[in-house]
Design a protein around this nucleic acid. Sequence first.
DNA 1: TAGATTGTTAATCGATTAACAATC
DNA 2: TAGATTGTTAATCGATTAACAATC
Lengths: 228, 228
Amino acid sequence: VPAAESINPAARRSVPEATVGRLAIYLRVIEEYLRDGDEVISSAELATSCGVNPAKLRKDVSFVGSFGTRGVGYDLAVLRDRLADALGLTETRDVVIVGVGNLGHALAGYGGLAARGFRLVGLFDADQRRIGERIGHVVVQPIEDLPRVVAAATAPIGVIATPATGAQSAAQRLIDAGVTSILNFASTILDVPDEIEVRKVDLASELQILSFRERNRGERIADGGTAS
Amino acid sequence: VPAAESINPAARRSVPEATVGRLAIYLRVIEEYLRDGDEVISSAELATSCGVNPAKLRKDVSFVGSFGTRGVGYDLAVLRDRLADALGLTETRDVVIVGVGNLGHALAGYGGLAARGFRLVGLFDADQRRIGERIGHVVVQPIEDLPRVVAAATAPIGVIATPATGAQSAAQRLIDAGVTSILNFASTILDVPDEIEVRKVDLASELQILSFRERNRGERIADGGTAS
DNA sequence: TAGATTGTTAATCGATTAACAATC
DNA sequence: TAGATTGTTAATCGATTAACAATC
């Protein structure tokens, strides 16, 4: 008897973190198949293209719903729409970037943002000399203008692309302005309140992990094999 | 009776993937404490600074060895040396970057590389117009020169910073040249042989994960809380 | 009906963490 | 000796995957 539990709305199964990341990958690969004119795909084929186990793919998709056809596969257009919906890509999300050095420039010019429903609404730098520069259709503003831009945007995500020394201060300014989700490219652990969501991308750490694996080749006992 | 197992060298416990990533973080934070002139630290304090559970930190460190002092803590200099050693940072690792657009520029100019024992030995681009440009002390070369540079380097890590359309071809060139570890910034799943190690950093995916979390605030049932 | 493939259950595997004996 | 903190065990938790009933 499954009982009460399934009635409680708070118990609705939340999508695991790892699954969310993979759904984004599935979505991108699905779009490639659609561009090629395909209409239906099996979990086996899609999983191969995404570099995952078919069972894992089906399980991941099942968190969003069940809209495949047994004996046939998934309708690619339906799958795309449902995943995009689940990932919140039907509405545009605003993004502000703090720090307009090399990395900030790269992020600001990254076409993938707009392609996936993100809109860059602000570029900020503490360095006077960078103020006024135009990147794409956005002009670099002084960091003091951050609160005004955040207030005008709808729940923007803050991206920190400053040097490590400026990262904590950038985070504080973002939080004070009302930002609750931060993507941190600086190699610093940010000290933030619990309710602020932070993700960290650390280039040097990624290289260190690769470096470690290389050194330990062969020492490994049957590992999971993170293929691409 | 623990027996034979502990004798078999292949059974030597390998360091888990997730642990390797955190060791790199611990190392960076330890270096900050050393700069401040500190000499000893408890797992509790270091764990707080790194945003992890003290038990997890001790467990992670124990994969590398046991060199703390009960009742006292860890000697910071010893801990740094052992972690750096375990992560293979005592010897310099060579790095080549394929694709010198905005992101390639950012990576080439990233000071954190040299600071953590990585040496940029080659910059390559398929676009004629970019050949010859000097970034730092490295000059951009035509992609055809890749094999020669890789052959001269010691097991370099290949970084792909091309647009998505050029990523698979870049990967193939790297592999043909003899590279076995690849860090992929392009938003494409690379099709590579099993023995090639690939890590993927996808900016848009990171934003999508943040975006998803934001949308589902409150729906979550007591989650792990990935603090900073 | 026979063949194929999903959706889901249950088993497995690995990672996190509480707890505590060891020991400084 | 008393207090502190490590190193490690064992329990918990969550994620992966094999397997198969459901069903097109």
